[in-house]
């Protein structure tokens, strides 16, 4: 019983990942601006990369296979998911920061507090 529940949770996560990947692709082509496009790309890598890996962990735990094989699959999946979870926010952060500071493109927002601070010289 618990195996079946784990298996269905995993399949659901993989399915959510696929849907997120499609949404990210559509968003990437539909959005007009750099920052919103970056948001769509990050959906693709967290939603489409992290969730399916966690889903694989649940699926493998629910399967009736050798114990060592289970360890190998869950271990690699969790490590890969951790690396994605660490690297994606840092990568998108530094991309957005680089583009903002180099004034390649200014975000289309009503109030830009960071820009005000930078002008006053309060932020480096």
């Amino acid at each position: 019983m618990i195996d079946l529940i784990l298996f269905y949770i995993g399949v659901a996560l993989v399915f959510i990942g696929g849907v997120m990947d499609i949404l990210a692709t559509i968003g990437f082509f539909k959005f007009k601006e750099f920052y919103t496009r970056l948001h769509a790309a990050t959906i693709g890598s967290i939603g489409g990369g992290l969730y399916p890996l966690i889903g694989v962990v649940f699926i493998v735990l629910g399967l009736d296979i050798d114990y060592n094989l289970k360890l190998v699959f869950t271990g690699t999946s969790i490590i890969a998911a951790g690396i994605i979870a660490l690297a994606t926010p840092a990568g998108s952060h530094i991309l957005a920061r680089g583009v903002y500071r180099s004034r390649e493109e200014s975000p289309s927002v009503i109030i830009d507090r960071l820009g005000e601070d930078l002008e006053r010289g309060e932020m480096e």
């Binding site: 690396i83 660490l86 690297a87 926010p89 840092a90 952060h93 530094i94 920061r97």
Partner: peptide, 13 residues
């Protein structure tokens, strides 16, 4: 050097 976010993640990775 870059921000603390990037430095920390780089140190881990």
């Amino acid at each position: 050097s870059l921000t603390i976010i990037v430095r920390l993640v780089t140190r881990i990775l």
